[in-house]
Design a protein around this nucleic acid. Structure first.
Lengths: 261, 261
DNA sequence: TTTATAAATACCATATTTGATACTTAAGGA
DNA sequence: TCCTTAAGTATCAAATATGGTATTTATAAA
C-alpha cells in the first residue's frame, strides 16, 4: 500500500494535495515558481491544479498575478467537523471556566490514528510563544500528559503495540526513555486520575491532563492545562490536577457519562 | 468561465472537492451509497476518490467498512492559514480582554472576495444557540455591523458595485432594505467610528463592530461584539461601541498602525 | 524606452485515467 | 443456517486528461 496504489487512487488528487500541503507548510504566500520548484509537477499541469483549487476556494491568489496561499475555505471546513463526537461543544463551558479561574492555557485533545491531536485551545494570558497549533498531531504518547492518560486507559495489548511502533524517543532531556520508568508513570496516572508531564515534550513547559468519557464509557479525549514552569511549580501539581479532573468530569457528564452504570 | 473550464481545470480535483463539500454539508458521517446518490460520479471512480482522500487525511473512515466524514487534517490546515495578515494573532489579546470584561461573544471578521468571513470567535457565557461557525461567510454587508463598517470605509465606487451585486435583501423584518436609509446608516457609522446592527441579520441579536487597520492604514478587519437583545439594550450602544473601538484600536496599534502619519 | 523575467495561454498527439461489467467479501436479517 | 444488501475489487478497451513546445501577456529592472 504505497503512497499511490496506482489502481485504487486518483493521481490528480494526490498531486493537488501535495500542492496544498506544500503551500501550507511554507506558512506564507508563495509564487508560482516557488511551488513549481518544490512539487515535481510539470508546469502546465501545475497551472491547471492551481486554477482548479483557487476556483473552489481551497487556495487563494492574493493579487491578479500573484502569490498563492491556503484558502479560507479550510477555515470553514475545519470548523465544520462533526465536532469529533460533539466533544468540542461539550467541553467548551468547562474549558472556559478553567481558563478564567487559572489564566493558563487550556487544551482539548484526542487520539486519532494512534496520534494525539489538539482539537481546541484557549490560550492563557502568559506570553509564551509556545502554543501548539490547533490540529497539530503528536505521535509521542510517552512524552505528553495527554498521551500518558491514553496509555493508562488503553488495553495492555494496544498499549504495547503503540509503544513499540513509536519507541520512546527523547524530545528533551526530561523525556522518559526507560520503559520501566514509563510503566510506573502510567500506573501513577491511573491512580491519581490525571496525567502529568514535566518538560518532557518541551523545555520549560509543564502540563496536566484528565480523561473525558462519553455515554458509552469510552475514553474520547482529554482536557489539559499547560503553563511555563515559572507559573506552574511542582507543588501546584495536585491543585491543577484536581482542576482538570473536575473540568473533564463535567465534560463527561455533558456527554451523558455516568460513573456507576 | 463555467464550473469546469475544460482546458484550465482538472476535473478529478473538481470531483474530489464536490465530494468533500457534500460530506461537509451533511454535518454527519455518511455511508458510501449516500455519497454515491448525491454526487453524480460513477461508483468505481467514487471509490478511488474516497480512497485517495482518506489516505491523505482529507476524509476519515470511521470503521473498517464504514462511514465517511471530513478528515481532521482540515483542522490543521484551517488553523495554519498565514493568519490573514497576522490579524488573528494581533487581535487575540484585545479580544480576550473584551470577552472577560463583558462576557459577550467577541468576533473577528474580515472581507474576502466581497464577502464577510468570520475569522475568530470567543463565545460568550450566554447560552445562545446562535453562534455562527468560524469560517462562515456572509455576503449581506448591509445587514451586519461589520458589513456597515466595511461599506463606510470603502471607496464609493466599490461600495456601489458591491451593493448592486447583492442588493438589499431582507434577512429579518428589521433589515434595512431602503437605500436612502442605508446611506444614512453608513454615514452614522462613519461618524461614530463603529457599526451597529439591531436584529437585522438575526432576530434577537444585536451587534457592534469597529475597524482594524494595518501599518499601511488599510482596513483589514473588524472586531465585533454580539449579544441577545435581553443583555444588550439599545441604551448600551454607546458603551459597547466604545469598547469595540478601543479593542480595535489596540489591535491596529499591534499591527503597527499610527493614526496621524 | 527596451530588456529580462515571471506568469499565463494555446495546441494536439500520446499516455493515462476512467468506468461498464462482472465478481468477491462482509454484514445484518429472516 | 441461508438470503439480501452494501462495500469493495478486478479487468481492459475507450475516452480523456496530460504535458512538451511555442506563444502571449504582464511586471520589474535597465
Amino acid at each position: 500500500m504505497g503512497q499511490n496504489d496506482n489502481q485504487n487512487a486518483v493521481p490528480a488528487i494526490h498531486r493537488a494535495i501535495d500542492v496544498i500541503e506544500f503551500i501550507s507548510s511554507a506558512q506564507r504566500e508563495l509564487s508560482f515558481s516557488e511551488i513549481m520548484d518544490n512539487v515535481d509537477i510539470p508546469r502546465q499541469s501545475l497551472i491547471r491544479i492551481l486554477n482548479t483549487l483557487c476556483s473552489r476556494g481551497f487556495l487563494d491568489k492574493s493579487s491578479q498575478r500573484g502569490l498563492y496561499r491556503i484558502g479560507l475555505k479550510f477555515l470553514y471546513l475545519g470548523h465544520g467537523l462533526p465536532d469529533k463526537f460533539e466533544l468540542r461543544t461539550a467541553a467548551w463551558k468547562a474549558m472556559k471556566a478553567l481558563s478564567q479561574k487559572t489564566g493558563k492555557t487550556i487544551e482539548l485533545s484526542s487520539l486519532d490514528r494512534d496520534q494525539l491531536i489538539l482539537l481546541e485551545q484557549i490560550r492563557g494570558s502568559e506570553e509564551m510563544a509556545l502554543y501548539s497549533r490547533v490540529g497539530s498531531v503528536i505521535p509521542y504518547l510517552h512524552a505528553v500528559s495527554v498521551g500518558k492518560v491514553y496509555l493508562a486507559l488503553m488495553d495492555p495489548d494496544k498499549r504495547r503495540r503503540v509503544l513499540r511502533k513509536i519507541g520512546l524517543p527523547a524530545m528533551t532531556k526530561h523525556t522518559i526513555t526507560d520503559m520501566a520508568r514509563l510503566e510506573k508513570e502510567i500506573q501513577e496516572t491511573q491512580e491519581r486520575g490525571f496525567g502529568f508531564e514535566d518538560q518532557e515534550l518541551r523545555e520549560g513547559v509543564r502540563r496536566v491532563a484528565a480523561p473525558v468519557f462519553n455515554s458509552d464509557g469510552k475514553h474520547v479525549g482529554c482536557i489539559g492545562l499547560s503553563a511555563a514552569i515559572f507559573s506552574f511549580e511542582r507543588d501546584d501539581l495536585d491543585k491543577y490536577g484536581r482542576m482538570v479532573r473536575e473540568a473533564a468530569e463535567k465534560t463527561s457528564a455533558e456527554l451523558g457519562y455516568v460513573s456507576n452504570p
